[in-house]
Structure formats: structure tokens, C-alpha cells
Nucleic acid binder design. Structure first.
Lengths: 173, 173
DNA sequence: GTAGGCCCTGTACGACCGTACAGGACGGCC
DNA sequence: GGCCGTCCTGTACGGTCGTACAGGGCCTAC
């Protein structure tokens, strides 16, 4: 039984790495399969359908997403601090949240993509307010983009360093 | 003859819009074709192969890319100013440069993807120096991400406003 | 009027994708 | 030994992608 769970976690690890490198739509089941030395049908056997891979990778941060949106913050600075902490903590799967999943326009209600899309929209609304002016819009997108790119491209750097530096950058914007 | 050039420019306009919305790999020739009321083979007739569409959209900023990399700047601030100006001016096709084209690992030498990849790498090297420390890396990626996201998501805002605001944000980081 | 070039369509091909399904290897349990 | 569930393979299907190619309107030039 250990072998079964082992291959399952090996598939998850390979998928996390490949999704971060090439994106969700950019990596096929065959890519993941060859990365762990299996067939693509074997991958499909454990994770069916493909969305389940993303869903399982995203499961650990689902709670954080909910609490981040549900919490009340004293000011925008507190929100920024929580946002940066969230982003850095889940940096290995952040690309799935910010770019890949939910990029399609066809979103079956109740799916993972739907939830992630509303999360992004809600997050932006929290950042810039309900009816933002032009400057606020630019700054909001700049903050999100800075966090996204910096975190995705520096996964080999120590987490605390990235967190501190990004908090500074986000505040500066 | 005007009709021929007209459909050609209409295809280009639709491609620019769709590429900005869904990305290069995310939009098919059929999507562009239906957007202009043609068949996908008609699109392929004018732009062959698909790369030519991206190449033609990117042609107007190729010169700016070269001059941006070739120019000498007094300090990093001058570089930032030129970078922000470049990014805002070509914001409708910036996603092609920063994300889509060159994302694949297979780059036939001399292709458009190859040139764009080296442009991105060179740009980052200019921003953070040849052997950057961890903090510089984080900041460099944060600047690029902020510019990219802000510009792509605010194409409906006046260009000068976005430029000024982003220059401020980039300097702050 | 008729030959030729330009635009465009229809059809078809091979490659790749995710998925479905039958069957085999392997181990635990009665 | 016989049985069964788990894990995995091989094969195949429908779909979409970019591309190739033959043919047909249509205008122009001779």
C-alpha cells in the first residue's frame, strides 16, 4: 500500500513542478507520466479527470483562501501583509491560481476554476475598493503582478527573505 | 486590392485582441477566423505559419527592443524610465513578449521565440546586474511582473496615466 | 473572350490532447 | 488452490490543433 501512495505523491510532486514551469494547460498527462516513469493512463487512473490534479495541489491553500477573503483587516497594510504571506506560502502552486486555472471562459459552476476566478476578483476588489479610480486600478494590478512574478521565479530562494522583500515592495506600490 | 489589405489588417486586429485576452497558444486560427467572419484556412492563407501572425504584430516594437538593449543609461532610474515607456507603448502585444512566445523549450535558432527569450533575459540582466543577490532577484522580477500585469489589464486606460503611475511604482520597488 | 493571378472555401491529413475500457500482473484472504 | 481487489498497461476513440492541397469565384489584362 505504501507503493500506491508513494506513486501518488510522486505524481503530485512532478505535476507541481511541471505546472509551475509550463503552466497547467502547457503540461500534458504524458509529460507528468514520463517524469515519474509511468504511462499517461496510469496518471489518469490515480487522478481522474485532470482537474483533480490541480484540485489536489490546490487543496492545502483552499482554507487559506477562504480565511483571507473572510477576514476583516484594520487597514490596507494589514491586508497586504496577509496577502504576501499567503502568496509566499503557496508559491509553488500560485501560478495555477493566478494564471492557468480559470483562464478559460467556460466555467462549469461549482468547479475549481470557478472558485479560483471569484477568489481573484474578490481579492482585487479588496485591494482597490469596489469602484476604483484609474490610479487604484493600475496600482492593484501592479501589486498582484509583482507578487505573482517574483514568487514564481524565485522558488529556490529562502521563503522568509522573499516574504519580507515582497512586503516591502507591495507597500511601496 | 483594398479589400485584401483590409481583411489582412482586420485579421491582425482580431489576433491582437485575442492574443491579449487568451494568450498566443490559447487562441486558435479558428478563433481568429470566426472573429473576422472567415475560415481558418483563409487566415492561414494570409499568415503562414501561425508564428507569422505574432511576428507581424511584434514587428513595430522590434526596433524599440533593440534600442532599449543597446542604449547606455546613466543610472538604473533612466533604464526604468525607458523600460516603462517601452512597456506602455506596446501594451497591446506585451503579453506575447513576456509570457506566450518563447515559453516553449524548443526554440529553433533564428526564430521569433528565440529573439524574444534573449530579450527577456538581457532585460533582467540589465535590471538586476550580472550576478544579482537574492534581494535584487526578487525586486527585478517584481518590477517586471508589476509592469506586465498592470499594463495588460488596463489597456482601456489612458496611456499617459498608466505610464506615469507605473514609473512611480517601478521606482518604488 | 479568354487566360492568369489573387482570395477564399472545402476537405483531408497527421499530431497531440484527455478519456474510456478490456485485460494482465501481483498480493492478501478464505 | 481459488478468488478478488488494487495497480498498471495497451489500445482505441473523439476532439482540436496547425497545415497542405485542389478547386472555384472574381477581377484584370491582353
Amino acid at each position: 500500500m505504501t507503493t500506491a501512495d508513494d506513486t501518488r505523491s510522486r505524481i503530485l510532486a512532478a505535476a507541481r513542478r511541471l505546472f509551475a514551469e509550463r503552466g497547467y494547460a502547457g503540461t500534458s498527462l504524458a509529460d507528468i507520466a514520463t517524469a515519474v516513469g509511468l504511462t499517461k493512463t496510469a496518471v489518469a487512473y490515480h487522478f481522474h479527470p485532470k482537474d483533480r490534479l490541480a484540485a489536489e495541489l490546490l487543496a492545502p491553500c483552499a482554507d487559506d483562501m477562504i480565511t483571507l477573503l473572510g477576514a476583516e483587516f484594520a487597514d490596507r497594510d494589514a491586508l497586504l501583509e496577509a496577502l504576501v504571506a499567503f502568496v509566499v506560502r503557496h508559491r509553488t502552486v500560485l501560478r495555477l491560481i493566478m494564471e492557468d486555472v480559470g483562464g478559460a471562459d467556460d466555467a462549469p459552476p461549482g468547479s475549481t476554476g470557478e472558485a479560483i476566478r471569484t477568489f481573484r476578483d474578490e481579492l482585487l476588489a479588496r485591494l482597490v475598493g469596489p469602484e476604483p479610480d484609474a490610479v487604484a486600478q493600475v496600482r492593484g494590478w501592479a501589486v498582484l503582478g509583482a507578487l505573482q512574478w517574483a514568487v514564481v521565479h524565485t522558488t529556490d530562494l529562502p521563503e522568509e527573505l522573499v516574504r519580507a522583500e515582497l512586503l516591502r515592495a507591495a507597500r511601496a506600490i
